[in-house]
Simulated assay, not measured.
Amino acid sequence: MKVRELRKSGNEYPVNLDDVFPLLYSQRGKAVSHLRENFIENEDYLIISQTGKNTKGRNKSDYFLSVSAMEFFVAKKVKEVFAVYREVFHKTLDEAENVQPLSEIDLLVKSALALQAQERRLTVVEEKVNTLIEDKSRSMKMLTEIPFSLETGISTPELSLREKIRLLVNRISAATSTPQHDIWNNIYQTLYYNYGISIKSYKKEKKNESLLDVAERKCFLDKMFSIASKLVTEKIVA
């Protein structure tokens, strides 16, 4: 804000080098050398000789910087980077100062529009929640309408034991929003802990043979069906 005040002061060279060089240099001479090497006299800074004031027999000169030169000076030699800062910083402040205060009516209209937008967003969220609830309800209903007995697995002749297991996994996933991959892992882990069967330990006969293919080949589907059926019962009770 101090820089802002200097910029608006109307003084072309409002900053005395003596006030800013201690920020970067331990000696004034180094600051002067940097200024002379990197900035243009009578454009970025002004030299004013102080007659009667001397140091070691020489007249002392005061260096007065423009606001932009002072900003670049503080940034030392990274002028390209600091140029971006100055452009954005001052543009933002200029825009902020040019914004006219809203009247009471404008404020009321703006508030009303904001409330309407918020209400629309809440309506959309509510509709999405209702849809999720309806989908969940349908999925749970499907879970209770398994087209075969969970105890015997008896159903239409064309539905194999493998297909029954896949159908149970699919419906458990839909009803509980659980990835099917996690349900299959649950079944295989239970198969191992309850029956001592590790499907992954069996060598595949074909390159693309799945774990379910291995289980079917080794005649473990009845046990997997029992595990999946129990999962369905647990989810319905829950």
Rank of each mutant, 00 (worst) to 15 (best):
V88M: 08
T55D: 10
Y63M: 10
L113E: 06
E95R: 11
I47Y: 03
V214Y: 01
V125T: 14
N11A: 14
N98P: 01
Q100C: 08
L211F: 03
F148D: 04
R171I: 00
S155V: 07
A96M: 12
N38G: 13
L167D: 00
G153R: 07
H34M: 15
F73L: 14
M70Q: 12
S33P: 11
W184P: 08
L122Q: 12
Y192H: 07
A75R: 06
Y63L: 02
S155Y: 04
I48S: 15
N130C: 03
N194S: 08
E234N: 07
I227Q: 03
S177E: 14
Q50N: 02
P101N: 06
A69I: 07
A238R: 13
V237E: 10
Q27E: 14
F72T: 08
R162T: 05
L6P: 00
T92F: 02
A228W: 01
G52S: 14
D62V: 08
L231D: 04
T123C: 00
T190L: 13
T55A: 14
D135M: 13
K60Y: 09
L24V: 04
N59H: 10
G196C: 03
T190V: 01
M1V: 08
K56G: 01
S111G: 02
C219K: 15
K230I: 06
F89K: 05
E80A: 08
I199S: 05
N16R: 01
I165H: 03
K53L: 12
P22H: 15
I187H: 02
L24K: 09
V74T: 12
E37C: 15
R4A: 11
K76D: 10
V124I: 09
W184T: 06
S139H: 10
V15D: 01
N42V: 01
N185P: 05
Y63W: 03
Q50V: 13
K30W: 05
N11V: 09
F89A: 15
V109S: 07
L122I: 11
R121A: 09
R162N: 00
F39R: 09
C219R: 12
I227R: 00
I165G: 00
K235I: 15
M142G: 06
F82K: 13
K235Q: 13
R4M: 08
L46K: 11
S149M: 00
K77M: 14
G52C: 02
R138S: 08
N42L: 12
N16I: 00
L150S: 01
I172M: 02
G52Q: 01
P157H: 05
Y202H: 00
K110R: 13
I105V: 11
E234C: 01
A31I: 07
F82A: 05
K76N: 13
D135S: 15
V78M: 14
W184K: 08
G57H: 04
E104T: 14
N208L: 12
D94H: 09
A175E: 05
E12F: 04
N59S: 12
K206T: 10
A175N: 03
I146P: 05
K79G: 01
L115Q: 13
M70L: 09
G57N: 06
Y188Q: 03
K230P: 01
K128I: 10
L93M: 12
M1T: 09
